[in-house]
Design a protein around this nucleic acid. Structure first.
Lengths: 191, 191
DNA sequence: ATAGATTGTTGTATTTTATCAACAACTCAT
DNA sequence: ATGAGTTGTTGATAAAATACAACAATCTAT
């Protein structure tokens, strides 16, 4: 984003050649650097070796689908904004993608997507730094307040994931069995 | 939710009579209490005079649309979960609704919506009663989110106590020198 | 200037948290 | 019924956090 004359580096993930070529051309015409991936596996390898300012990803692809990859990336702590796209998305897919952390969802074929992407990449920075935790009980000692915080963090993820310990442990970045102990220590009855 | 034999009170906001009657019948068959509103204005009046466990609202209505009302309600601090519905929603509408705080988005005509609503109303409760901390960035791993939490906790006490380490350590229940290390680890420059 | 108090850094011991590993108990598909 | 997979518990060990202790550096009142 700071090099020569490009405004950002974008990864386009989609198996439809026509669609990706059009998007690629449009973006490169206005000086964005783009890379293409045709599958989730290809995308993973590229993201492991590169840093992008934005990822534009199709929902339906051969092999692993986009929503699943989105979940995987964000649970691994990926910070790159991801925009999902699809030609025939059900509301439930869109809701799911948004809940998983997608920053937007575009309908294919894409129209007027440039300002949207530009806006995301422009504001990406301030939005992140505004994240504030509120409602902290400052009358408590750090450890007590921290326990409340952790309880809520974990309860949130439990309720979002059908109380699935293995999944929540993955999301939280904890070893599975640690989560069992933690829930017990925090007095959280998984049910 | 605590009266006679109903499981919850639901407000249905939609101008399509057929649609609302069907939903109403289904919900009441399983002992939910429902009320209907045909417009945003009617809904506002009803919500001002009643408490609901869930609001089911159409996007397109005569007068003010559902998304706009959603925005208005949540910016006013409404805590009732709102589920949006629409027969012809664009992804952009769904994204907008989710970003404004809708808890889900259903496609009309509604199919199998009962478990979805039930799930929302079921998990709403534990979350509500524990609500003390908010604004947690759930996309982060526990450790990262915790660091943000602790930073805020400590910064708050530092600014309330003239950056006095000894005092803040006492308040936080930490050993004084531990606080020096912690501030350094959290990247907090005492000044 | 000086003594005493406070602030800040660091080594080490202790405690707490988390991982790794193993296995029992349970669930589910066949 | 059975095997595979998942869930839940627990011991041992590693890693991280915190307390205890010491001392240098700085500040403040006299």
């Amino acid at each position: 984003m700071t090099q020569d004359s490009t405004f950002g580096k974008i990864l386009i993930i989609d198996d439809e050649k026509d669609n990706t070529e059009i998007i690629k051309d449009i973006l490169e015409d206005v000086s964005y650097t783009t890379m293409l991936a045709r599958s989730a596996n290809e995308a993973k390898a590229i993201v492991a070796a590169n840093t992008f300012d934005l990822i534009l990803m199709d929902v339906w692809m051969p092999g692993q689908d986009g929503i699943s990859l989105l979940s995987e990336w964000y649970s691994e702590g990926l910070s790159t904004p991801v925009v999902m796209m699809s030609g025939h998305a059900e509301p439930s897919d869109i809701v799911k993608a948004m809940k998983l952390g997608a920053v937007d969802f575009l309908k294919k074929p894409l129209h007027d997507f440039l300002p949207i992407l530009r806006n995301i990449m422009t504001r990406k920075e301030p939005e992140k730094s505004n994240q504030q935790v509120s409602g902290i009980d400052y009358s408590l000692k750090l450890k007590e307040a921290r326990n409340i915080f952790e309880s809520q963090y974990l309860l949130h993820h439990l309720s979002d994931n059908d109380n699935n310990i293995a999944v929540v442990a993955e999301i939280a970045g904890l070893e599975r069995t640690t989560l069992y102990r933690k829930l017990k220590d925090l007095g959280i009855d998984k049910k």
